[in-house]
């Protein structure tokens, strides 16, 4: 039971916005879509929701195509934010939640709960146009999740929020995920994906660079990073087998090795020199993976 995209392609005239994406979002997972501007994240989301028709390929959720019979179980926060400016917060959320099949009574209870959670209970009776941009974004997020959907699609949920609100939002998203919802979100910030997701898909100009379980991707990637801190001269390590790159900044040296097996000989070599404050083998960062797959730095 999951969301599956098979050979998903979208072309606008000659321009291919999304090119042959294949991926599976397991039920209950937190799935990150990573990519710069124009990578195809929003187009993919719109196709999942049926707002755009794919040129080729199939999308199934729990084995069935997504149509308006299942949209009540889906929550969506679009990248382009916007609400009815003249409506009050309460009216706006009530309307959008009713469109998702909620009853007025349930909406009232849940709305109070969510406004408390996002620390904006005083805004319930205010018109949307009177709220700050960040608060409007919170209201829109509430509108997209108040009906407790099974599948939540959040397009750039953290953009435009200050660090405090980003933390509040992250906490809520994690809670929703731990209560069973499958969450897909897009971002151009690698650290958000690294911190929150088990699964990810990196998109670049409409193509799928890599996708799957993050730990698996990192371990399949092979490359590791070694950080060494100490007073001794270790510049000779650059010549050792398996070392791809070496950077030294004062007493801290960062090595890239092509496989973990090369870490042990390096360790054995340096302890001959004496005491070192730090020897640490790290998993590769998503940035390393991106550079290696795409051949350029992540934007």
């Amino acid at each position: 039971m999951s969301l599956e995209l098979n050979q998903l392609t979208k072309k606008f005239n000659e321009n291919t916005a999304v090119d042959d994406i294949n991926l599976t979002v397991p039920t209950g997972s937190m799935y990150g879509f990573l990519g710069g501007n124009g990578a195809g994240k929003t187009t993919t989301f719109r196709m999942i929701l049926g707002l755009l028709k794919q040129t080729e390929g199939t999308i199934t959720y729990n084995g069935k195509p997504i149509d308006y019979s299942v949209t009540n179980r889906i929550g969506y926060l679009p990248e382009e934010r916007g609400l009815h400016p003249k409506l009050k917060v309460e009216e706006q959320i009530r309307y959008l939640a009713q469109l998702k099949g909620m009853s007025k009574k349930d909406i009232d209870v849940k709305l109070d709960e969510w406004l408390e959670r996002f620390e904006v209970p005083e805004n319930r009776d205010k018109r949307i146009e009177k709220l700050s941009k960040g608060n409007q974004q919170k209201i829109q997020l509430i509108a997209s999740i108040i009906h407790e959907p099974d599948l939540i699609i959040l397009d750039e949920p953290f953009s435009g929020l200050d660090p405090v609100n980003v933390e509040i939002l992250k906490k809520s998203v994690k809670e929703l995920n731990s209560s069973g919802a499958t969450i897909i979100f897009s971002t151009h910030r690698m650290e958000h994906v690294e911190e929150m997701c088990e699964e990810l898909c990196i998109l670049n100009h409409g193509s799928q660079v890599v996708s799957g379980n993050i730990d698996q991707i990192k371990s399949d990637f092979g490359q590791k990073e070694i950080i060494i801190e100490g007073d001794h001269d270790i510049s000779f390590l650059e010549e050792m087998p398996g070392v791809l790159d070496m950077k030294q900044v004062r007493k801290k040296t960062t090595l890239k090795i092509s496989d973990e097996q090369y870490a042990e000989p390096i360790f054995k070599e340096i302890i001959k020199l004496g005491y070192f404050k730090r020897f640490q083998v790290n998993e590769p960062s998503l940035n390393d993976i991106f550079i290696s797959k795409v051949g350029r730095k992540y934007e």
């Binding site: 929701l49 949209t71 382009e80």
Partner: peptide, 9 residues
């Protein structure tokens, strides 16, 4: 742009 939320429902 509220329409995008509406037409997703």
């Amino acid at each position: 742009r509220v329409i995008e939320m509406i037409v997703s429902s």
